[in-house]
Design a protein around this nucleic acid. Structure first.
Length: 779
DNA sequence: GATTGTGCCCTTTTT
DNA sequence: GGGCACAATC
């Protein structure tokens, strides 16, 4: 026990040892919040509390996993494993599967992701002949999500005066009706969306006292991480389960509440003391992560917010370096400056790629940064954006699995009924849907029904095709319990012919798709291995079912985390929450981007945006670099931008003032900045750099590369490259960086001539011939 | 019924 | 600058 408390400061110790009763920990950024939580759980286990009776709710799967790993290092790993630890969604989906029959679902209900929901909405709109412009799926889903998070049923929604007024004002009076159909369809498909998981958990705990009692008994101790980001539905679940014993510990920081847009309610944290008058309030205010400069900068920013619990976050680390602000003329130059800066620091300070993170407001900003990093040969990894599980081919295969497990899953069924093509076309599907609707059943019931025959107006060929499809799905279903996940997955894959179809496409994209399918199969295998490992000795077969339960709630964030790999991290600020890096770059600090244009209308929205900036600042341990561009391409056209107000909100004494542009300046702020600072960059380095960019061509050739076109003559004297006209298919060529390769395809004319070259070392690359310097080795 | 072509949105942020 | 829904064509 002594070691568990060792190395903790006093408030942390208090948070760890106050096991009984309601506790709220207000934890400033970097104040050792996770440490307090993990040590608390370890302490509880060591005190003899049954791990099965502890429920710890986190915001992401990743956070849960990390905490579990840390606890396993503190106490008996077997015990640690038994703690109920996970996201709200994963823990309560688990419980809902156990209790599904009470709610009119079966235990293998499907979880619809946003994409499925969107498609379902669009299908409903089509049926009702509503214009998708008047009723954008996104808007409707947002409304529905808000309603569900506030525990409104479709009926509540329609009967609520205020809500109806809002929809009326937005000229969308039918949202409530669409909500009704949407929910009906979900139910018919034996499916829940993300919000339903929380909604139905509440229904379960509200309407079934004996079930509520059961879980109150089981979960004697409740911990909630990131409490500031909980919404009403989550709040009420906690409240209900904790009601009996009130052994509840919530940890959060109001200054880091950044999920208001999806219904998170900051009031939950502010009201904790009303809900639990006996509460003990513990403040963690010492920041162990960052330098004084960084902490003070963050404090000066958050001071501009009106809504906040006043606290004093402080650091007793060194002052540290001032914050650098980079000013670029364009988004591409911003990328270049950031890449150069990283390169400079790496060289001068012996740092690794993984010491750096580049954070941005929106995923779309990653492009220009990526391009620049590639040119500097800096390895990076992007988190978020299109996730692995969002790729089309992955979703297709998963849809097969979904249908096999739950044939009423209509979104999945529609996805695969004619993929790979088996002659079941649009008209057939439309007619099926009509019949299904008449019978108040799903499509599956129509095509698989033994008793009710297919309507006469289907021709016999179509009926055979449908029957064959149904028979195939059924044959998979019989294997569900008999075969383990990976065997069945492979069997489905082969029988259906997905890989065969994909292999017909030998473009780079096609090859990537096959690889993705293989990766998915690997993931299933890994999952199976892990399951066996976890239950020591016990070898329980992992069914596909089991895998699919997990997969719906996985995101990219949770995927492999190769610690040893050396990559610069690129991610949105939202996904960076909870992480820390020595060097942090926050890019795109411009008005209308960060703060975003949509947040400028109300104070609340602007304050959330400011908290987001606060989160970004406080990720840094050693050094912060901010950047903004004066112009930026947004959805195709050039827009001019002012520097963000947030830059000015930082105490100016903490910022290294970049002098107004003097390109020949020989300034020396510090050794690392020579590369990074546009104003200290000598003319020589500029040239040097341009040379690099023109030589090492990548598929990403566009504006920035074109800018350097003027210097091409200057460069080309060094080499003896073939002229673009000479390059034809079948040639063996040599590229400066990619080495030897074979020209597979040439397209375009004149200056736009492009070639696909397969390089032995790095696969196929698209090259713009006017930039790529290729030596012809063999005609 | 499938394949190719065209126009139209779009960009917050995520379980 | 791109992905996706729908339309036109084979």
């Amino acid at each position: 026990m002594a070691d568990i408390l060792q190395g903790l400061n006093n408030p942390q110790k208090e948070a760890v040892t106050t096991v009984e009763g309601p506790v709220m920990v207000i934890a400033g950024a970097g104040s050792g919040k996770t440490k307090a939580l993990t040590h608390r759980i370890a302490y509880m286990i060591q005190e003899g509390i049954n791990p099965f009776s502890i429920m710890a709710l986190t915001f992401t799967n990743k956070a849960a996993k990390e905490m579990k790993d840390r606890i396993m290092k503190l106490v008996d790993p077997h015990a640690a494993r038994n703690v109920w630890m996970g996201t709200f969604h994963s823990i309560f989906a688990r419980i809902l599967r156990i209790e599904a029959q009470h709610l009119g679902f079966t235990p293998d209900f499907t979880i619809y992701d946003t994409d499925d929901s969107k498609q379902l909405i669009n299908a409903i709109l089509k049926e009702r002949e509503l214009d998708t412009k008047a009723y954008p799926a996104k808007y409707i889903l947002h409304r529905i999500s808000m309603a569900k998070s506030a525990l409104y049923t479709p009926e509540d929604y329609c009967n609520n005066f205020e809500i109806q007024q809002q929809d009326l004002r937005a000229n969308k009076p039918l949202v409530g009706e669409i909500f009704k159909s949407y929910n009906n369809r979900l139910q018919r498909a034996n499916a829940m969306d993300f919000d339903d998981i929380l909604f139905y958990t509440n229904v379960l705990l509200r309407d079934f006292p004996e079930i509520l009692y059961k879980y109150q008994q089981r979960f004697e101790y409740i911990l909630v991480d990131e409490y500031q980001d909980t919404n009403y539905a989550q709040y009420l679940i906690i409240r209900r389960i904790a009601a009996m014993r009130e052994n509840i510990c919530v940890v959060g920081d109001d200054a880091q509440s950044i999920y208001g847009f999806r219904g998170a309610n900051i009031q939950n944290i502010l009201n904790f003391k009303n809900d639990y008058p006996e509460q003990k309030l513990i403040r963690l205010e010492q920041n162990y992560r960052s330098t004084k400069t960084i902490v003070n900068a963050a404090n000066s920013v958050i001071d501009h917010n009106k809504d906040q619990i006043k606290k004093k976050v402080w650091s007793d680390k060194e002052e540290g370096e001032l914050i650098t602000v980079l000013r670029a003329t364009s988004d591409n130059e911003e990328g270049t400056l950031v890449a150069n800066s990283i390169f400079g620091y790496k060289m001068s300070r012996q740092l690794n790629n993984k010491d750096f993170a580049i954070l941005y407001r929106t995923n779309s900003q990653s492009r220009s940064i990526e391009e620049a990093l590639r040119k500097q040969d800096i390895r990076y990894r992007i988190y978020g954006g299109l996730s692995f599980y969002d790729r089309k081919e992955v979703k297709d295969l998963l849809a097969y699995f979904r249908v096999v497990i739950n044939p009423h899953d209509e979104q999945a069924l529609l996805r695969i009924i004619n993929y790979p093509a088996r002659g079941i076309g649009k008209t057939t599907i439309e007619r099926l849907m009509v019949v299904a609707d008449e019978r108040q059943k799903g499509i599956w019931d129509v095509i698989a029904s033994e008793t009710e025959p297919m309507p006469n107006d289907f021709n016999s060929g179509t009926v055979t095709k449908l029957r064959n499809f149904a028979t195939m799905i059924r044959s998979f279903q019989t294997l569900l319990d008999k075969q383990n996940a990976i065997e069945l997955a492979k069997h489905i894959c082969n029988t259906v012919g997905i890989i065969k179809v994909l292999k017909e496409d030998d473009t780079p994209e096609g090859v990537a798709r096959v690889q993705n399918i293989e990766e998915l199969l690997n993931a299933i295998m890994e999952f199976s291995d892990k399951q066996v490992d976890e239950v020591t000795g016990e070898q329980n077969t992992v069914t596909l079912n089991k895998f699919m339960e997990d997969v719906a709630l996985l995101t990219d964030q949770d995927k492999k985390d190769d610690e040893d790999d050396d990559y610069v991290t690129l991610m949105t600020i939202h996904s960076a929450k909870g992480l820390e890096f020595p060097y942090v770059y926050i890019v795109g600090l411009e008005e209308n981007l960060f703060p975003g244009i949509q947040s400028l209308s109300t104070r609340e929205d602007l304050e959330e945006e400011r908290r987001l900036f606060y989160v970004a600042l406080t990720r840094a341990e050693t050094k912060l670099v901010l950047s903004h561009a004066e112009s930026r391409y947004r959805w195709g056209n050039l827009t001019l931008s002012e520097p963000s107000r947030f830059i000015e909100e930082i105490d100016p004494s903490l910022i290294e003032r970049t002098k107004k542009a003097s390109f020949r300046g020989t300034s020396s702020f510090n050794e690392g900045v020579n590369f990074s600072n546009p104003f200290s960059k000598s003319f020589q380095t500029t040239r040097e750099f341009q040379k690099r960019t023109t030589q090492s061509d990548t598929p990403y050739i566009n504006k920035s590369a074109q800018k350097t076109e003027s210097s091409e003559k200057f460069n080309s004297s060094d080499f003896n490259p073939a002229s673009p006209d000479e390059i034809v298919e079948g040639m063996i060529v040599l590229h400066q960086k990619f080495g030897q390769g074979r020209v597979e395809k040439v397209e375009g004319v004149g200056p736009n001539k492009k070639a696909s070259v397969f390089f032995d070392e790095c696969g196929t690359k698209q090259l713009m011939l006017k930039f790529a310097k290729l030596n012809i080795l063999k005609q």
